[in-house]
Amino acid sequence: MGAITRLNINNLFWLGRYVERVFTTLNSFFKYADRFIEGGQAAYEKYLADINVPDIYKSSEVFFDRYVFDLNDENSIISNLDRALGNGIVLRDEIKTPSLSYLQLAMDRFKACKGTTKIRYDMLPVRDAIYAFWGSVDNNMTNLEALRIIHLGKSVERLDLYLRLGYPIEDIFVQLDNLLKHVYRRFDTISSIINLDNLEALKNAASSRADLKALCAELLDNVDNLVEVNFVEAVAV
């Protein structure tokens, strides 16, 4: 296992988060775009509220363009892809050139889609590139600790977004299990911070969406604290 520098650790975690944020918000946006086909005024306001993005768009048309393609809009999907790419560029030696090339490819294809009238179709190569990125890091990375940290970021982001975007309980359970698995692997001292037995029991007992959201919120808060202590403060030293 190679040593990971303190500067890289934060980049690894956020690389995982941003790539996942692009992927899941893009999928979610596609659902919105699908509802838009029949001309109905899709409730983009609710979508924004769910993911905690302020409504600066004021109309579906502006939302459709800026939220997806505007690099100057810090909440847009493309600006999250830009951040993913920025983290990837400083991690070339860890994630390897082919993995980075898939992020660049995703960005190039993404930009080429601006102005499209068939966004779900034209954006397929973007999703393909992101799938390829994940395949590439799994195949090419030799530093397994670094790989786990990227996956931890991905898992945290996915669970967070699934909760916000109202994904089915079954999907959230799957993501919760995934996150626990990554947390177990990453943090040896987890049991001293989170009572996992209690968490498992709570998970099994969670019968309503509200219970589950509360449970996941507790876990995400605890992971955030762990990340803050282990990654962010480490970098700040």
Partner: peptide, 17 residues
Amino acid sequence: HSYFAEKTGSVLVQNTD
């Protein structure tokens, strides 16, 4: 810098590392 780090199996560092 990053490409040679990858290709030589070196660790890419900044001074604070």
